[in-house]
Design a protein around this nucleic acid. Structure first.
Lengths: 224, 224
DNA sequence: ACAAAAGTGTTGACTTTACACCCATGG
DNA sequence: CCATGGGTGTAAAGTCAACACTTTTGT
């Protein structure tokens, strides 16, 4: 069978990742500078167009690799952006992806075939972005706030475990408010997504802090 | 600018709606029988391919109209289905939509240019479906259970208001369990999405039941 | 007057929030 | 010995689940 109706042609899929990190009380997102038209020399979220011979997951990972050199990052889809003119070239539907990594444990390329620069940007200091990427970024940050409550999305920030004070600070940063430490511990532990190691390490204080880690497999809560 | 990379071509978007109704304690979904290849003469969810000159919302409404004659139905996107071989014709990404209407207040066409039949099917009596529509339907029903908890998605079932006993029955049907009526009233009212009318009507009993209605503007929590 | 469904409150279990002091370590 | 952040419990308020009787109407 062949597709003949011209209205069905010339549609593409953008896979666009908002990759966040949290550092010293600041949430940052990874942006790259484009070298190609359209939006040449503009900053943009990491991503690009899906190939017709790859699955979505493959596609977003390939795009992240091509534009940053980063491999092994977990991202998940959270929203669809479909306005007719969101791309000036041809009709493109964007699938928004969300991920979190530790800026200190990842190396990314400053330049690739399609980018001339890459960097972390604090959310209150975002330069003008290509396409509708600002809208996508805002939606992604909003989704991040939902996701950290009952998932292990922060696991990639702490592959080797974390202390309560430090992860509490991440929550406080993302939610932009302070949380009582006794209540935070009780709640966070009772979610059942973390477990005790028997190690200790230091965060900000002089007293060693207990090290926790995310459980490997988190069961997703069903409404029913 | 032109798109040259052949890997970017030959991708299309399916817009696929799972349209539910609830009747006499049974949840049903609207299916249509296809007259075109592929999956000729198979039952399918309502939907089709997006045109490159229409917004997503326009597209799904056009598809619903073309395949059923129904207008004015509200649907919202809930998930993306992107496996490479989900369509045998060419690469298609499906956007899954979800809606609810009252089967008694809507008329749909048994035949259209692209369908030879249409009907409501109880969820435990679904025929073999085209494409991956069974998977889409299952995901949609699951999403329906989430959505009815904190949205006015059932509004279309009751444009003129509803009584507590009748809407409780809808909840019990969808969740397939009984609910204490005192607790149901308290919870449902406290959600803040409905309001009192001062009318009364009859449901199953002889005693008139108070009529409630959904508030006009509820912000709906979308998963996607 | 009776059948059938509508309507209404209270209690105990559990969850969430607010709040203050001692502990371990490095300098 | 003191400064710094790490670590801990309890009580009050709010939320959720279980449970039984009275009211209104049609026949």
């Amino acid at each position: 069978m062949k597709v003949n109706n011209p209205l069905y042609k010339k549609i593409g899929i953008h896979l666009i990742a908002s990759i966040f990190t949290v550092e010293k009380g600041i949430v940052k997102v990874l942006l790259v500078k484009r070298t190609n038209k359209p939006y040449k020399d503009k900053w943009a979220l990491v991503g690009g167009a899906l190939y017709n011979n790859e699955d979505l997951e493959e596609g977003i990972k390939r795009e992240i690799f091509e534009k940053t050199g980063i491999v092994g990052i977990d991202v998940s889809i959270f929203k669809v952006f479909g306005k007719i003119k969101r791309s000036p070239v041809q009709r493109m539907i964007a699938l928004g992806y969300l991920g979190v990594i530790d800026a200190n444990k990842v190396n990314f390329l400053k330049q690739t075939l399609k980018t001339s620069d890459a960097d972390w940007f604090a959310l209150d200091n975002i330069p003008p972005l290509a396409y509708d990427h600002k809208e996508i970024l805002d939606a992604a940050f909003n989704e991040l706030k939902n996701k950290i409550v009952e998932s292990n999305i922060l696991q990639s920030l702490y592959p080797n475990g974390f202390t309560m004070p430090e992860i509490q600070k991440v929550y406080e940063t993302i939610f932009n408010k302070t949380i009582d430490k006794r209540n935070f511990r009780k709640k966070f532990f009772s979610l059942g997504i973390i477990e005790d190691t028997n190690k200790y390490t230091k965060f900000e204080g002089t007293k060693p802090a207990k090290l926790y880690r995310f459980k490997k497999h988190i069961k997703i809560k069903n409404v029913l």
